[in-house]
Amino acid sequence: MDKKRLLIVDDQVGIRILLLEVFATEGYETFQAANGRTALEIVRSHRPDLVLLDMKIPGMDGLEILKQIKEHDRSIKVIMMTAYGELDMIKEATDLGALMHFTKPFDIDEMRLAVNMQMGEGSSSRFATGS
């Protein structure tokens, strides 16, 4: 069976390295991007199953990246990461199709569980879709 693909998008290299190590250990094929342009190139060329997406990224913000990911392929799952209590942005991200969000500093085990749960679900998602 093909490995599930995970894309980590964060401008902080320490967070990318931490998440890459954790999820490579979980057996995922992991990709990383420090900015929106790279993230979207990876989405187009590798079609990740799930994207861990930081809300605050220089250049193109997380909401814009999320919009473009969903325009490219609605089935790609997205979990937002945020360092601030950006409740309005979190609501907008949810409206745009993000499944959930983690506030930094997040609990790495909670993140791992959430990702494993999303990756294990295949097409039968626990989250309602549609209007």
Rank of each mutant, 00 (worst) to 15 (best):
I69G: 04
I90Q: 14
K91Q: 11
A98C: 04
Y84D: 09
V115N: 11
K77S: 14
P58V: 07
I57M: 15
M55R: 12
D61Y: 11
P58A: 04
V115A: 11
F106N: 06
H72Q: 12
K70D: 07
G59F: 03
H101Q: 00
D88Y: 02
T94I: 14
K77P: 02
K70M: 08
A93S: 11
F106I: 07
G97P: 02
N116C: 09
S123T: 07
M60E: 12
L52T: 13
V115D: 09
M60S: 06
D107A: 10
K91M: 10
I108N: 05
G97D: 03
K67F: 02
E121R: 13
K104T: 01
L87W: 12
D109Q: 14
L63F: 08
I76C: 10
K67T: 15
I76D: 09
H101V: 01
G59S: 10
L53F: 13
M80Y: 10
F106G: 06
E64S: 13
A98H: 06
S123D: 07
K56R: 15
M55K: 13
D49I: 07
M100H: 12
E64A: 14
H101F: 15
V78K: 02
M55C: 12
F102M: 10
D54C: 12
I69F: 03
E71K: 11
D107F: 01
L96E: 01
L53Y: 14
D88H: 08
L113Q: 15
M89R: 13
H72P: 00
E86G: 10
M117N: 13
E92Q: 14
E64M: 05
E92D: 04
L113Y: 13
D109M: 11
K56D: 09
L52A: 04
M81K: 02
G59R: 08
E121M: 13
H101N: 05
K77W: 00
D49C: 09
Q118A: 15
I69P: 06
D49W: 12
G85C: 07
M89C: 07
H72I: 10
L63P: 02
G97W: 01
M55D: 09
I90W: 03
I76G: 09
K56I: 14
G85V: 07
G85P: 12
I65Q: 05
F106A: 06
L53R: 10
Y84P: 00
L99P: 00
K91F: 03
T94G: 01
K67P: 00
G97F: 03
T103R: 14
L63D: 09
M55Q: 15
R112D: 09
R74M: 08
H72M: 08
M89Y: 13
L87Q: 12
L63I: 15
M119E: 06
G122P: 01
G85F: 08
E121H: 06
E110P: 00
A98G: 06
I57T: 10
F102R: 00
K56P: 00
